[in-house]
Design a protein around this nucleic acid. Structure first.
Lengths: 344, 344
DNA sequence: CTGAAAGCGCTAACAA
DNA sequence: TTGTTAGCGCTTTCAG
C-alpha cells in the first residue's frame, strides 16, 4: 500500500505528475478529471501514478480557476445571549446532521460562528467566495440582513421561522402550532396559570410565544405578563426567572419553555424552591434533544426532526445551486408527552 | 451604513478597488495588508473605499499566492461503530469548544468527517493543503496512520490516549487513572461484581479498561470476562449487553460504562429488566456530558474538561505552526459522584 | 513611496 | 488525442 508510506516531504503539483507520466500538465488535468478526451489506458496510467505518489489536486488553485470551491458554509449567528459559545445541544445536533448531509454529497464544510453579527457580516461571507453556498442555522436577529442578501445570492438556505415578508429560503417548524400544542397540552391537564420562558425577539421563539398566547386566549385564561420572561438560551437566566415565578406567584402551575435547555434549568430551580414537577408545576420544553428522554422527570417536549430538517436544507441548497428556487419547507411539530407533565 | 445596502451583483476584485482609488493593484494590496510602505492617509482612503464597496480579499487567490489558508481543519475519524453519524454529545461538544478557540484566533474551520478512514486519508488531507493545521478528534483505530503522518507534518494535534510509541502531539485525559477511579469508587461502595461496557480496541477505552482491571485486581475481585462487553458508542448495543448481563448474572451489582451515552442506555435497560439504580446496580459513566447531571438518577461519571482540552489543543497547534514542538498534555480525570451510585 | 510584472497551481480554449 | 498558452486574483520582488 504505497499511500501508507511515510509522508513525502515535498508537496507535489500537477507538473510533477506530468513529468513522471511523460505527458503534459493538461493531459494530467484532463485525466484526473475523467475527461473523455483521454484514452482509458493513459487515464489509468496517470491516475495510478498520481495515487502512488499521494498526489491531491490543490483545491485553492482549482477553485481560483473554476470559481467553485466544493465547499458549503455552515453559519451560526449568535446575535443573542448565550454568550459567545456554541453549546446548546440543538445547534450542535443540527450541525452534526448538516455535516452528514454535506459530506454525503462530496462537499467540504466551512464552519463559521458569527458572534455577534456586525453590519455586513453576510455580505462579507458571500463576497469572500470561500463557499459555493451557505446554510444559516437560526435567524437570530438578522432577518433584514438575510432578506437583503438573498436578493442577489440564491444559494442560501436558512433554518428558522417563516416570516411574512421573507425572500430567502427557510426550512423550519411551524412554531406557532408547536407553541399552541404545548400550551394546549398543559391546559388540557387542568393547568390555568401557565408561564412562558424564552426570548420572543428571536423569530422562532416569537412564534412559539404567539402559539402560547393564542392557546391561553382560546381557553379563556388571563394573560399575566409577570409569568412571561424573555430569558436567553442559557441555564442561568432561566433558573433566575423560574425562581422568581415561584417566589412571586404561588399559584403558577404550568410552564412552557422555549427550549429543552431552558426547561431543564427551570425544573432544577423549581425543585430547589420546593415545587414538585409535574405535580405542582407541569413543564413542557421544545426540541426533544437527546437529553429530554433521560431527564428526571423525563421531559415533555415539542419534537423537531433535525435529521429530516438537515436533509431538506441541503436538498434545497443544491437545487438552488442549479436553477431551482425552492422557497423552503414547513415541518409539523410533534408533541412528545413524558413525565414532566404527566406523572408516570 | 453603506454595507447594509443590498448586495451588489458583481463580485469585486482588487483591480476594481484600485481603479476606484486611482492607484495600482499593488498599492491596494499593500494598503489592505497594512504595509508600512503606504502612508496612512492613502491607506485609510483605500480601506474606506474597500469597505464601502463591501470588498473582501479572495482567500483562494491569496492562499494560492501565500501558501497559507488561515484555516484549521477539524477532523472526526469514525473508524468504529456508531454508524456514519456524528451524534455522540462528546464529539459535538468538543467540536463546539474547538470552534470557539479557532474563531478566537481569527482562523476559519474546515470540518471533515472521515467515515470510515481509508488508507491514505490523512496524507490526502495534508496534501490537499486546504488547511494550515489539523486537529483530530479521537484516534479511532488510526494510531499508525497518525504516527506516520506526524513525521513530516508538524501542525497536527490529536485528542485521545497517550500511547507509548506515539510521535504525534496528543492532548487527552489520563484514562487509566479515570478507569481506576471509577472502578474504585464502585468497589468502595461494596460492589463486587462489576461489569464493563465499552470497546477496548479504541485506545482511550482500552486505557479506561486497563484502569478498571487494575482496580479489580487490586481489590482482589475475580475478573469475569462475561461481564465485559465491547460495545460501540451507540445506545443499542449497550442496551443489549446490559440486558444480557442481567439475564445471565443475577449477582452483578456494579457497572462502569466507557461513556455517558453508554451508561444511560444501560440504565434504561436495567430499569426495564427490573433492576434499581443504584440500589441493585451502581453505574458510573464517562465524560460528564451536559446530560449527566439531569438524568434519572443523575449520573456518577468521570469528568473531562472539554473547554480546557480544546484550548490546550489549539494552543499546541499554534505553537506547532511556528517552531514549537510541544508533545501534548495529559489532563487529570475527576470523579463526579451523583445518584447513579449513591442514592440521594 | 508606487507601479509593472512574475508567478502561486490549476483548467480550458485554441492549435496542432 | 495532445500540448501550448492565457488567465483565475492575489502578493511581492524589482525597478523606478
Amino acid at each position: 500500500m504505497p499511500e501508507d508510506r511515510t509522508l513525502r516531504t515535498k508537496r507535489l503539483k500537477m507538473a510533477d505528475i506530468a513529468r513522471m507520466s511523460g505527458v503534459s500538465i493538461s493531459t494530467v488535468s484532463r485525466a484526473l478529471s475523467g475527461s473523455p478526451l483521454i484514452p482509458e489506458a493513459t487515464r489509468d496510467m496517470i491516475a495510478e501514478i498520481a495515487k502512488d505518489q499521494g498526489y491531491v489536486i490543490n483545491p485553492f488553485a482549482r477553485g481560483l480557476r473554476l470559481q467553485r470551491t466544493q465547499t458549503i458554509g455552515v453559519v451560526i449567528p449568535l446575535g443573542h445571549g448565550g454568550g459567545q459559545l456554541i453549546t446548546d445541544p440543538f445547534f450542535l445536533e443540527m450541525l452534526g446532521r448538516l455535516a452528514d448531509e454535506i459530506t454525503l454529497r462530496g462537499y467540504e464544510i466551512l464552519l463559521s460562528k458569527i458572534a455577534p453579527p456586525k453590519p455586513g457580516w453576510l455580505d462579507r461571507l458571500i463576497q469572500a467566495q470561500r463557499t459555493d453556498g451557505l446554510v444559516i442555522i437560526g435567524q437570530s436577529d438578522q432577518h433584514e440582513a438575510l432578506n437583503l442578501a438573498a436578493e442577489g445570492y440564491p444559494p442560501l438556505v436558512v433554518w428558522g421561522a417563516h416570516l411574512p415578508d421573507q425572500t430567502y429560503c427557510v426550512v423550519g417548524l411551524d412554531n406557532v402550532a408547536g407553541g399552541r400544542m404545548a400550551t394546549e397540552h398543559l391546559i388540557g391537564l387542568g393547568r390555568r396559570r401557565i408561564a412562558f420562558l424564552g426570548d420572543p425577539n428571536l423569530p422562532e421563539i416569537g412564534q412559539r410565544h404567539e402559539g402560547y398566547l393564542a392557546a391561553c386566549r382560546h381557553a379563556g385564561l388571563v394573560y399575566d405578563p409577570k409569568l412571561d420572561a424573555p430569558v436567553a438560551f442559557t441555564a442561568r437566566t432561566a433558573e433566575e426567572a423560574a425562581t422568581r415565578f415561584v417566589a412571586e406567584h404561588k399559584d403558577f402551575d404550568g410552564l412552557f419553555a422555549a427550549s429543552d435547555v431552558i426547561a431543564l434549568a427551570a425544573i432544577d430551580a423549581l425543585k430547589r424552591s420546593g415545587r414538585r414537577v409535574p405535580e405542582d408545576v407541569a413543564v413542557v420544553g421544545f426540541d426533544d434533544s437527546t437529553i429530554a428522554a433521560h431527564t428526571h422527570p423525563p421531559l415533555t417536549t415539542v419534537r423537531q426532526d433535525l435529521a429530516l430538517a438537515a436533509k431538506l436544507m441541503i436538498d434545497h441548497l443544491f437545487e438552488r445551486l442549479d436553477e431551482g428556487r425552492p422557497m423552503g419547507t414547513t415541518l409539523p411539530p410533534e408533541l412528545v408527552v413524558r413525565g414532566s407533565t404527566v406523572a408516570a
